[in-house]
């Protein structure tokens, strides 16, 4: 069996209000476009959550400026991380 690709990186959350319902839904929707399993945690510790679940993302008490550690496991892991990073740093297309 081929070994699954794993990738991870740390991104900075630039959304002013943190991951409240609206950005969390954008993030979860994006994560659901990928095959890979994607997990997010605060870089300075704390529980990992499933990036495909809006509920779990909302539980990350991530404030603006927080460093987030994102891990993806699966065929499209790199692409998934690119997409997630773009959303986190570009405020989910919000102003």
């Amino acid at each position: 069996m081929e070994e699954e690709k794993t990738a991870s990186r740390t991104c900075r959350l630039n959304n002013k209000l943190g991951l409240h319902a609206r950005p969390a839904s954008v993030l979860a929707r994006k994560a659901n476009e990928f095959e890979a399993e994607i997990r997010i945690a605060l870089a300075d510790g704390g529980e990992e959550v499933n990036a495909k679940s809006i509920m779990e993302i909302m539980m990350l008490a991530a404030e603006c400026g927080a460093e987030l550690h994102v891990t993806a496991k699966g065929e499209d892991a790199e692409e998934a991380l690119d997409a997630i990073e773009q959303h986190l740093t570009n405020n989910f297309g919000e102003e």
Partner: peptide, 14 residues
């Protein structure tokens, strides 16, 4: 905001 509410209903983990 209702997109977010719909996502909450559709949340796979829950």
């Amino acid at each position: 905001i209702f997109d977010a509410h719909m996502m909450l209903v559709a949340d796979q983990v829950i």
